[in-house]
């Protein structure tokens, strides 16, 4: 018997596909978080941005019949939250954490209310047909990499493209240099002709666009439905992924894959009837997050101005 047969075994295939499906939302949220944190703003509101993206994306796609319109407006919803966060943290110099938490709590209520408003209370859960898997010819037949990377919905490919794109922005473009300057040394950035307020605001909008895409992915690509609080803490897990991935797009992708794999593994474990109570399997990503925080807190470099509001012309 071919010792490598398990690679093409449908169970393994399913596991690999699921890994990617579960990786993408948290990876996108973490990428969004990266832009905010590299500019020195702690974005706790990722959870709320994702939830908004998931709901608005779903509702619009359901109403219009266009998945793409749903994706677009879902991202916009995230961006609007980014603007709100920017208003608070940049204009008002509010505590970044308090505002983020308040936004998240508001969004849980808002999406749930709006869902009932749009689809009626207690209606049978509406569905849309999610983005179908798009098998890339030839590539999709490669063992492991095929199901992992090339038998996915189109949003997955879009998300993959965002990794090198973010990397190019951060390490090759003036914008990335300006973002780094603002996150590391806002006073110096101002002397260099960079507006800290503008860079941070734009970063939060970008953050919202990407996290909103992550949310829209949940409802429009991974499932085809919307559930109350369906993000289930992914926005917070993304913050741990950021730490593990050292706020670098490639690192984030790898760290997110680790979490996606753990999540797929626990789903698979539930399906296989391993005898382990399913609750312990579902705990896995959350425990992993804590392990990551223990192992990586204080290691690696944090943007020096992270979490610190900046006020121009502060006295002395």
């Amino acid at each position: 018997m071919n010792p490598l047969a398990f690679l093409t075994d449908p169970v393994t295939q399913g596991f690999l596909q699921a890994t990617t499906r579960l990786t993408i939302p948290i990876m996108l949220a973490a990428l969004g978080g990266m832009f905010a944190e590299r500019a020195g703003v702690l974005n706790i509101a990722l959870e709320g941005m994702m939830l908004a993206g998931a709901f608005v994306g779903f509702a619009v796609a359901y109403a219009s019949g266009s998945l793409w319109l749903g994706v677009g407006l879902g991202m916009m919803a995230g961006a609007i939250i980014g603007l709100a966060l920017a208003f608070y943290t940049v204009r008002l110099s509010s505590d970044q954490v308090v505002v983020g938490i308040a936004i998240n709590l508001t969004m849980i209520g808002a999406t749930s209310y709006a869902f009932r408003a749009v689809f009626g209370p207690g209606a049978a859960s509406p569905r849309v047909t999610p983005f179908p898997a798009l098998n890339i010819p030839f590539l999709s037949d490669i063992p492991i990499a095929g199901p992992l990377l090339f038998q996915q919905g189109i949003l997955v490919y879009a998300a993959f493209l965002l990794i090198p794109a973010s990397w190019i922005v951060m390490s090759r473009m003036s914008a990335g240099m300006a973002i780094t300057a603002v996150g590391e040394h806002p006073e110096a950035a101002e002397t260099l002709g960079i507006s800290v307020a503008r860079v941070r605001s734009l970063c939060l909008v970008a953050s919202g666009l990407i996290a909103g895409l992550g949310g829209a992915f949940l409802s429009l690509s991974a499932t085809g439905l919307f559930l109350d609080n369906m993000t289930a803490g992914r926005g917070y897990i993304a913050l741990a992924i950021l730490l593990l991935g050292r706020r670098n797009p490639w690192g984030i992708a790898a760290a997110a894959a680790l979490f996606g794999g753990a999540d797929a593994f626990q789903l698979r474990g539930q399906g296989l009837g391993s005898g382990i109570p399913y609750q312990f399997l579902v705990m896995l990503p959350y425990i992993l997050t804590i392990v990551v925080l223990i192992g990586f807190a204080g290691k690696g470099h944090n943007p020096a101005a992270l979490g610190r509001p900046f006020q121009r012309n502060r006295a002395e």
């Binding site: 807190a297 944090n302 979490g307 509001p309």
Partner: peptide, 8 residues
């Protein structure tokens, strides 16, 4: 660490 940044 991030924790310190959060502790404003």
């Amino acid at each position: 660490s991030t924790s310190e940044a959060a502790n404003s």
